[in-house]
Design a protein around this nucleic acid. Structure first.
Lengths: 206, 206
DNA sequence: GGACGCACCGTCCCGCTCGGACGGTCCGAG
DNA sequence: CTCGGACCGTCCGAGCGGGACGGTGCGTCC
């Protein structure tokens, strides 16, 4: 196996690698569309990177590139055994970091003290609408593929997306209704009132 | 009111503005710590930006800067009326974008087909532990401040964080147990089995 | 059937982001 | 006084982000 120049593989790298592994040889534009209606829903990747990243990965020996000569300039990338190995290694290795939720609305909520109170109400209304829309979208997808995740393993991720969307929706509805206590109560109903496990990680100062 | 050179205000900008609005005059290091045990939990901001961003904002007239002369070089930033106005305007204005969940684990799950099946099991186990830890941390914070969000409006955001953490935890537990159907069932129990509202946004191709 | 219009596709650019390395500062212990 | 370690600030280089721009192919209309 030829030695691979060490490159930093970012999440973007793995998305490219993964998409090509799942779909077979692809052009950047293929990737753009594939990402756009799958992982793109919860993690946005700007399209320009889907052009530059495969180049990097080709240099690193994880992809090979075939340029079309006639007509529209177009490059088709395929995954190499090294690429597949790198992808599998990443999947198998323990995850390094906790998730991030990048939600401007959440920031606005946090800083709501400086605005005026009914900003929060408006914000909540907006978020409710937004998340309802998302849920309808996701539910539609589930419906079109059948509810059984065995049919399409990629749909498992959709289920996670739905769970999070519903949770967020519940939160904003409770906030709009001024009933956060009810939210907590319903949560306990599902999970039991006790904190799960509780390693004694001490929360730090706030 | 002096005219303000137009600058792009990013979420980072508003975090800086917001933190200074809430806390009063602060040094970048103050901001770093304040962010670190609040918004930093769900949206990571690299510390270097908390030094450079206030500079930008000062140029834009949204902050003022006072340098300490003696001892350690240190700059204390305060918010100007223009800064506060910009912040309030942002809070009031409708949110532009949907949240993003940047979770490497979610990506790994999506690409699980290419790895081997028990990678998923290991992943689930890891995530369960990770989220339980987080929940314990957050619950600890809630406890220290009392459960009544009226006591501290900043804690409302914590409640959202908890809701999302619990949802995610439920998902990974269900996945580990091989019972995603049960997950869906419990969700219906909370929200009713019907898709909320459903604007007829058609899901696109998959 | 040439000219036009528009969707499709690829590239470039520039400012910001990111994380880590590095260096200075303060304070307590030895 | 000196040393060490926590505290604090700056710098740098690679990567990200998103929008502008330009080319390509195809259908349409005169």
């Amino acid at each position: 196996m030829p030695s691979v120049p060490d490159v930093r593989l970012s999440p973007t790298s793995y998305v490219v690698l993964g998409m090509i592994a799942l779909r077979g040889p692809s052009t950047p534009y293929d990737l753009k569309r594939a990402v756009g209606h799958s992982v793109g829903y919860f993690w946005h990747f700007p399209h320009a990177q889907l052009y530059s990243e495969p180049e990097r990965l080709t240099d690193a020996g994880l992809l090979t590139c075939e340029s079309e000569t006639s007509g529209r300039r177009r490059k088709t990338y395929s995954i190499t055994p090294e690429g597949r190995a790198a992808l599998e290694a990443w999947i198998a290795e323990p995850s390094d970091s906790h998730f991030q939720i990048r939600d401007p609305a959440e920031l606005k909520l946090f800083f709501n003290e400086v605005g005026n109170p009914d900003d929060v109400t408006r914000l909540a209304g907006q978020q409710i609408a937004r998340h309802e829309e998302r849920i309808a979208l996701y539910e539609g997808m589930v419906e079109r593929f059948g509810p059984d995740p065995a049919d399409n393993p990629r749909l498992i991720t959709l289920e996670l997306g739905l769970e999070v969307e519903y949770a967020t929706l519940r939160f904003w509805r409770a906030l709009a209704a001024g009933d956060l206590a009810g939210l907590r109560k319903r949560r306990d109903l599902l999970d039991g009132p006790d904190v799960p496990d509780g390693t004694d990680t001490r929360p730090d100062q706030a």
